[in-house]
Nucleic acid binder design. Structure first.
Lengths: 219, 219
DNA sequence: GTCTATATATGGATAGAC
DNA sequence: GTCTATCCATATATAGAC
């Protein structure tokens, strides 16, 4: 009993330390990429000595892979489940909003992902070609059906999804540029402005206009 | 005379070698970022020994800065000069097309830029806050005037520009992901499909629809 | 579990022969 | 101009004391 409890406590502490390390590592990897990041920098960020850090993770590679796994869970999974029965434009703009919120609230995660993709995704290629492609194909099919049924304007579903990803992630990945171009004043409201802009943008793209702007008679 | 000619020849050879080095360096830096790139790798790509390379550029930093300068010239400068007198939608979709062509024809340049921005743009911040902001503000003003005059639908010009940048550069920076998601068959036509998609997208966004979809009476 | 010290490797840059 | 050899700094990872 005492032994089991002790073991459990150790594991909890270990998990907490690992959390701290992963958090520090995320900041470093997001900024400097895999090769540009040093264990020293991660250790400093986590308030540990280098050998101590290596007590919890046996190598830099292991930290990085742990981060990528964590990323795929908390980043990709909760993403879009478009409700085929819902209002198409509301479903899609809702997805846009959620993606933009993630760019705002988890910019480091977005940059880590961007870094890995920029490098040719050596550790994620299987995941992209397998699970990700399946999810995207499934959601693209929903969008495609909406278009066929005339509930939204005709659109290439896959490229529409790329446009949503690109426009929203831009505010995380290119944040420095966005702020530089907007200037100090407008930077403060950049995410609110981006949301208004992007929701309007995709509404206009998807709204049916069969020549007179009125909603179609079917449905 | 002979001396001058000889000196000229030497400079030409030097320039050519520097070109070869820069080309190899571009590929490496675009893929691995500044810190992730080694002089060895650049030298190998250029077919030179490491010390020989360092005869032409005195440091890795110098190669990188030369690349960034070259980038700003050939990448940013020829970009948009929207003609205020032209057709607004044609002007903007033309810009979209040119940006997409650059993503297709110069993906390494796009990724190099993306890498630098992702890292917080330590070497480009002044340029972003100065010259780039000025260009963007100028073009944004043109777009803003078009909107005021009712020649396009109301839109936030700065965020519209971000959307154009994001959607077009996506096809260079996230190429691996795009190809993975599209699959082998559709990947072959990804740039043609992207062009059709994006031109339609921005046309829909900018087209005035004052409730009946017909063009306004003014102009 | 955490530290100091260190083995080992890699990478930027230079010296100096040719 | 180009090479070999090398210096030196940095970085990963381990050994071993506490």
């Amino acid at each position: 009993m005492a032994r089991a409890s002790e073991a459990r406590k150790e594991t909890r502490i270990q998990r907490e330390k690992r959390e701290v390390i992963l958090k520090a590592a995320l900041a470093e990897f997001a900024k400097n990429g895999f090769r540009g990041t040093t264990i020293d920098a991660i250790a400093a960020g986590a308030g540990l000595s280098k050998p101590n850090l290596l007590y919890y993770f046996s190598s830099k590679e292991e930290i990085y892979r742990a981060l990528l796994c964590q990323l795929l869970d908390t980043w990709l999974e909760p993403l879009f489940r478009l409700d085929p029965e819902g209002d198409p434009i509301a479903e899609i703009t809702g997805y846009v909003r959620r993606k933009l919120e993630m760019a705002r609230d988890y910019p480091a995660e977005s940059r880590l992902f961007a870094n890995e993709i920029l490098r040719g995704a050596p550790r994620l290629k299987d995941m992209l070609e397998g699970p990700l492609k399946e999810i995207v194909d499934r959601e693209a099919a929903v969008i495609g059906r909406w278009a066929e049924e005339g509930r939204i304007a005709p659109v290439d579903p896959h490229h529409l999804i790329f446009s949503i990803w690109a426009t929203t992630q831009h505010y995380a990945d290119f944040d420095v540029q966005v702020r530089a171009v907007l200037g100090p004043d407008r930077s403060a409201t950049r995410f609110a402005d981006a949301e208004a802009h992007l929701v309007t943008l995709f509404e206009r793209v998807l709204r049916r206009t069969d020549g007179n702007g009125k909603p179609p008679e079917d449905s």
